[in-house]
């Protein structure tokens, strides 16, 4: 008997308590709330901090598409996030590309990487899948460490943002913020649409019972691969944007600790919840920011949070909230 990653919000809820339309209304409300928060956040918080949060939140959403909805635990998403950061950095710094092209290029690079790694990794399941993705990501890390293109230990520094469409100067954080906010909103809405498309339903079916989906005639491997590519591309979108926010692409972005962080974000927020990863990203980014002075204690605290979440808080913050509100979030 196999035990699946528990979805935070049982699908049964969907049928009960008012049905899909009510749930969809809740979701539109949540989207409006997120948009409002994104608009007012820079009034209260340092814009770079908020942008960092938005990038990681998008990254975690992309990651959760695979883990929470496809049941595939990738331990190598740093490869797409960091690889895209390097790609954006290179395009913007060396080729002088404007941000929309630099980030677009990064998304493409991440998608191609996702297609190659995904093709090899989806042949296996569960822990095996996790280890293989981790190993591929480590290969990318070693490549970044040695290659002259990625700048080795220094990484790519002082990456210019250039001007949007050659028109809007983005060097000011206050201006750049709106581009990041737009990318974030578009990204999470895209993930939301994927989850609620027929494709997403099949994906959830595969998570719940792969054998049955195969016997129903679905090309399960293809669905998994496409999910992997979408998730990688969106992680690339997040990573590329992050490189422009900080003017930096470095080894930190491709290291396995980054892959671990995105797992942690998803876990804290709630595996398989739609908006959980955003909350989880907020918790992790805030934790890193406010505890930065504690040095290696951050590592210990992060590890403890990991352990506590796995042992007693598997539903995550949004999972618990959704149960309490009797809806899917």
């Amino acid at each position: 008997m196999s035990h699946h990653i528990e979805p935070t919000t049982p699908t049964q809820l969907q049928g009960k308590t008012g049905g899909r339309r009510r749930t969809a209304r809740h979701h539109m409300f949540v989207f409006a709330l997120i948009a409002a928060l994104v608009v007012i956040a820079p009034q209260f918080l340092y814009p770079v901090f908020v942008m960092k949060f938005l990038c990681f939140a998008l990254f975690a959403m992309a990651f959760n598409l695979m883990l929470g909805f496809g049941g595939l635990l990738s331990f190598g998403h740093a490869a797409f996030f960091g690889g895209a950061a390097y790609a954006t950095g290179h395009a913007a710094k060396v080729w002088g590309w404007p941000p929309e092209l630099a980030i677009g290029f990064a998304v493409l690079v991440a998608a191609v990487m996702g297609a190659v790694f995904g093709f090899l990794a989806i042949k296996s399941r569960g822990i095996y899948f996790a280890m293989i993705t981790l190993a591929f990501a480590q290969m990318v890390y070693f490549y970044a460490l040695q290659s002259p293109i990625t700048g080795g230990e220094d990484g790519l520094q002082s990456i210019p943002r250039n001007s949007l469409f050659g028109l809007v100067d983005l060097s000011s954080d206050r201006v750049f913020y709106w581009l990041v906010a737009a990318i974030f909103m578009a990204g999470i809405f895209f993930v939301y649409r994927v989850i609620h498309s027929p494709f997403g339903e099949v994906l959830k079916g595969i998570r719940e019972n792969e054998q049955r989906m195969i016997s129903l005639g679905y090309q399960v491997q293809r669905y998994k691969l496409v999910t992997f590519i979408i998730s990688a591309a969106l992680s690339g979108l997040a990573g590329g944007t992050k490189a422009l926010v900080f003017h930096l692409a470095s080894l930190v972005d491709v290291h396995w600790t980054m892959s671990g962080e995105v797992v942690l974000m998803t876990l804290i927020g709630g595996l398989g919840s739609i908006f959980g990863p955003i909350v989880g990203a907020g918790v992790v980014v805030a934790m890193q920011n406010y505890l930065a002075d504690l040095g290696s204690l951050v590592l210990i605290i992060q590890g403890m949070v990991f352990i506590v979440c796995v042992l007693v808080f598997r539903e995550g913050i949004v999972g618990v909230l959704a149960k309490w509100l009797k809806t899917r979030l």
Partner: peptide, 21 residues
């Protein structure tokens, strides 16, 4: 009794704690 992925995540957390200590 749970999905073995949880054990992987737990030992990952443990790695962070041990290395951090």
């Amino acid at each position: 009794e749970l999905d073995h992925l949880y054990s992987l995540l737990l030992t990952f957390g443990l790695t962070l704690v041990i290395a951090g200590l």
